[in-house]
């Protein structure tokens, strides 16, 4: 066969890139992967509030979607504590505990 598949070698081997340019590009790719949570309506906040109170009261597990270090995270567990003054809640799942600030939550549902 006379056609060679050398992946991207032809171009990666011939290009000239300044280290500063490469660094800026990698930063740009990193930035592009940054997760932007949706802006929630008052109704959506009320629904999240209702589910948290219900979960706390009924001791039922909840799946919480939140933002951490600009990326989307999920944690499934039981609401152990809610601190309305400092605006955070503590969720546990066996040995693992997670403290989530209210402002970082963007969705809550039953698993």
């Amino acid at each position: 066969m006379s056609t060679l598949d050398r992946k991207n070698k032809l171009w990666e081997g011939s290009r000239m890139f300044l280290p500063e340019h490469r660094k800026n590009l990698l930063e740009h790719y990193q930035e592009a992967q940054t997760f932007t949570p949706p802006i929630l309506s008052d109704e959506a906040w009320q629904e999240i509030n209702r589910l948290i109170i219900e979960g706390l009261h009924d001791e039922s597990p909840l799946l919480i979607y939140y933002v951490k270090q600009k990326s989307a995270q999920q944690f499934c567990g039981f609401i152990e504590k809610v601190n309305p003054y400092e605006h955070w809640l503590k969720v546990t799942n066996g040995q693992t505990t997670c403290t989530i600030h209210f402002k970082n939550i963007y969705r809550v549902e039953y698993p």
Partner: peptide, 28 residues
């Protein structure tokens, strides 16, 4: 060698290289 093959492919308009967004991921 391989370069002769690559040149022949280029002359015949053949290039299987992808447009890669990951080409900067690994420093060689």
């Amino acid at each position: 060698g391989i370069n002769g093959n690559v040149l022949w492919m280029t002359a015949n308009g053949i290039d299987l290289s992808p447009v890669s967004t990951h080409s900067f991921d690994h420093q060689k």
